[in-house]
Structures are given as C-alpha cells and as structure tokens.
Design a protein around this nucleic acid. Sequence first.
DNA 1: GATTGTGAACGGATTCACAGCA
DNA 2: TGCTGTGAATCCGTTCACAATC
Lengths: 203, 203
Amino acid sequence: MPLYLRAVEDFYRREHEVVSSQDLGDWTGLTPAQVRKDFTFFGEFGKQGIGYNVKFLRQQLRQILRLTEDVHIGLVGFGNLGRALVHYHVDAHTAENPEFGAPDRLRITAAFDVDPSVVGTDFRGVHIFHVDQLSEIVHEHGIKIIIIAVPAQHAQSVADKAVAAGVKAILNFAPVTLTVPEDVKVRHTDLTLELQSLAFYTG
Amino acid sequence: MPLYLRAVEDFYRREHEVVSSQDLGDWTGLTPAQVRKDFTFFGEFGKQGIGYNVKFLRQQLRQILRLTEDVHIGLVGFGNLGRALVHYHVDAHTAENPEFGAPDRLRITAAFDVDPSVVGTDFRGVHIFHVDQLSEIVHEHGIKIIIIAVPAQHAQSVADKAVAAGVKAILNFAPVTLTVPEDVKVRHTDLTLELQSLAFYTG
DNA sequence: GATTGTGAACGGATTCACAGCA
DNA sequence: TGCTGTGAATCCGTTCACAATC
C-alpha cells in the first residue's frame, strides 16, 4: 500500500482528478487487476466507469497507513550506517521533499548506542542515549518501531530488549535472522545478501 | 541461496561435519522441506539417512553463487548513503569479518558522482569518478552490478546509462520504480517504504 | 463506453508424505 | 532408524473475465 500512496501522491501533485487502476498499474509496474484486488481488501474506493477520485483515495490511503498521526521510531546503533539513516530520513521528512511521496509522520525520536563518545550527543536533532535506557525511553516516547543498525552479534539481544519494552515492529539491517514473538513484525534489509543474489544473475 | 550459504558457513565455523535440512531450516527460519526443494534445483548434495556434508555443501554453494571469482560493483551517488554503503561494505569484506557469512569476492571497484568536491578523490580505497565516465569505467573494469544511491529524479537516467553500458544487475536505493529491459535484474531497497509498511502494523 | 468489484480459473510456490537408501 | 529426494496434494497470490454501474 505505501507504494500506491506514493503513486497517488504523484497524480495528486500533477493535479489529476481521477485515476484508473490501469494508471496506477502503469505507475507501479503492477497489473490493474492486482491494484483493484489490493484496494478491495480495505474497502471500495472507486466508481465504476470512472475510476478513483485522487483526493479521496489519497486520504483513504493515508488513513489506512496511519500516516496521519505521529509514529515514533528508535534507532539502535549509531555507527556509519545509523548516522546515514538519520541523515537520509531527516532529509526526506523535513525538507518538504516530494520525491519520497507522501509527507508522513514517521519520526526518528531517539537513537541508542554504547560508545561513550557518541552517547549524550545530538545529531540532526536526534539525541543519542545509552542502550541501557532503551526500555525507559521507548516507554516515555511511545516508540513503536525500532531500527537495528548494530553489529550482527548484538542484534538479537537488542531485538529482545526492544520486544520486552513493547516494540511491535523492527527494521533490521544486521546480517542475522532475528527470532521474535509472532505478533512482532520484522523486515530485514541486508546489503550483502542483496549483492550476493544479484551476483548470481551476472553469469 | 545466499542465506543458506551464510547458515552453512556458521556450521562450518562451529566445526560441524554434517547438517540436516532440519538444522538449516531452524537456522534460516524455513521448513526442512523448503530447504531440500531449493537444493534439488541445483543438484543432489546430501546423503539419505545422514544429511549434508558441511564442507562439500559450502563449496557447492560458493560455486553456485559465483563467489569464487571477483565481481566488480559500481556505486553511483556518493552522498551520505553512498559513503555509508562503502564504509559498510569495505568493513564487511576486508576485515575477515565472519559475521557476514561467507567471505566473497564482491568488490566496490569504483564510485561515481557529479559533485566537483568529491569527484577525483579517494575514499577507503575507492576512487570517485564523474558520472560522465560511467560507461568508460564500467567497460574498463568489467563492472556487472551497480548500486544506485542518487536522488530520485536522477535514478532512472543513471539506470539507463548503466544498462546501455552493459550492466546486468542493479541495486536501487532511490525511491522510484525503475524501468529496465527484461534481462536486467533490479532489487529495490527503500527505507521510507519499509517504515511506512511497518507503521501499518503498529496499530 | 469505460471502469470497478469479484467469483472463478490459473499457476507457482510451499508443504506433505513416503519410497529409497545409508 | 534417520534423513534425503521427489511426486502428489495443497495453499495462496495473481490474473481472468464479466456482471454491475456510472
């Protein structure tokens, strides 16, 4: 769904009044049937013979994706990768930057590390706490998502702490498969795995 | 398959002689049946009643994934993200770092940007060329994969140039859906999309 | 005529279950 | 007995095709 929202935002920006599932399919690279099926899961947004009202659809998608209220995110691991992620995210979400699609309410509220030389400092408006304060800060700010950008050997224990603190979603950049309870959603991004996969196709 | 290799490397490091599809399933989070099916696509590696010989399986997987010869990678876009990627990758692949699983031959051979203040400099052993030299350098070094870490509005034109130069695989970090010929493999990593997806589950 | 929403058909991927072998 | 390799069975996501509707 986030991809559809990005598409709809683009049509919105270009002042289209309506879009068809065909239009959205072209934009996203999916089939029109796929687009319609995905939408019906959440309700009926379109008008037969006409298409989807862009303004209405945009609003519906934002609602569905909970982009209308602040979502607090914690970042664990403030090495090169963590720093780049903050940079990237802050750029994307403060600069009224339309290239990312919908402006949303995703906020990196706090960062965590163990290195005394960064703990206690601020970076791009984000304060870096010691990892021992994870649970405390998660509760204090109502953090629902954490990003794991620590070395592999610490990733699982960070995940455990976060889950214990009530975090329900994890974006994992460490090269390990995390074990978490069923009700916690994990997404995994792994540069090495991606490159190794691609290398296979270069024969 | 890269994930299996990582698992096998782990068993290898812990000096296991054999692994069962059950073991590998536990490690990766997949079912044993799945593991066996995936392997049979490439051949028969195991012994009935025993399991898979770790050393042999490791060697086979490396062969399959073409990790035995150098694969040259180009990085386009040397902003915060690009820099972090080089950092990360160089760390992962020079430090004999076992946490990433198999040592491989994936090399970021060259980087590209348009900013005169970085073009011509070196970073962590990687030289930064002007994007205009993309085609030339791709041919010169036999680059097969490029990583796109440029702003959204330039991503497609970079992809086009790379494809024209003969690149067959692209790892795209820009928040756009790239259009490429069928024989080019694209993988897309999009922080904003990942976070928006996760936000949906935090209700 | 255009386009949605949807039940039916399809197909690919996953899982089952078991024969075969160490 | 234990575990692989694999055909059969099943599941699930995608696509088709069309009735309903603007």
